[in-house]
Amino acid sequence: MELMFAGLFGIVIGLAARYTGRHRERSGAVLVPAVGGITALLVWEGLTWLSVSPGMEWLAYDAGWIWWITLGVTVLVTFLLALSIGTNRKRDDDELLDRLSHLGRAAV
């Protein structure tokens, strides 16, 4: 059940990252939320497996650290992704427009 909540929180964080980022019209509507959900699920599962290791009991399901780490990594990944996708796509689109406008008609 906690895995489902981690995935849902990841999607919500991804939605927040998508709609607060610049150049959001340059990427798909589902890309950043999907990456947020996948990131949260992978981090949660990794920490769950790590919690059975000796000395890592502080990552148990009922402890708060597993949530803080999962949500923190998800926020970091999704906001960096939303920022980089929009910026890189705008730069690439502007470069392509400039290159095509100076070449003239392309040979078919």
Rank of each mutant, 00 (worst) to 15 (best):
M1Q: 11
M1V: 14
E2R: 11
L3Y: 12
L3K: 06
L3A: 15
F5N: 14
F5Q: 14
F5I: 15
A6Y: 13
G7S: 12
L8R: 05
L8V: 15
L8S: 07
F9M: 14
F9P: 03
F9Y: 10
G10I: 08
I11S: 00
I13F: 07
G14C: 02
G14W: 08
G14K: 04
G14Y: 03
L15G: 07
L15W: 06
A16Q: 05
A16F: 12
A16S: 08
A17M: 03
A17W: 06
A17Q: 02
R18C: 00
R18N: 14
Y19E: 09
T20E: 02
R22G: 11
R22T: 14
H23T: 09
R24C: 05
R24T: 06
R26M: 13
A29K: 08
L31D: 14
L31H: 03
V32P: 08
P33A: 00
P33L: 06
A34M: 13
A34H: 07
A34V: 15
V35F: 03
G36I: 03
I38Y: 03
T39I: 07
T39C: 12
L42P: 00
L42C: 08
V43P: 04
W44C: 01
G46N: 01
W49E: 09
W49L: 14
S51D: 05
V52Q: 09
P54N: 02
M56K: 01
M56P: 01
W58S: 06
L59Q: 05
Y61M: 04
D62Y: 11
G64Q: 02
W65R: 03
W65Y: 11
W68I: 15
W68K: 07
I69V: 15
I69Q: 02
T70Q: 06
L71P: 12
G72K: 00
V73L: 12
V73E: 02
T74I: 07
L76F: 15
L76A: 15
V77D: 04
V77H: 01
T78M: 02
T78Q: 05
F79I: 06
F79D: 04
L81F: 04
L81G: 06
A82Q: 08
L83V: 06
I85L: 15
N88Y: 12
R89Y: 03
K90G: 03
R91G: 05
R91K: 12
R91D: 08
D94P: 03
E95C: 06
E95G: 01
L96H: 09
D98G: 09
S101T: 10
S101M: 08
H102G: 13
H102L: 13
L103S: 13
L103A: 14
G104N: 04
G104I: 05
G104E: 02
R105N: 08
R105E: 15
R105K: 14
A106N: 10
A107R: 12
V108A: 13
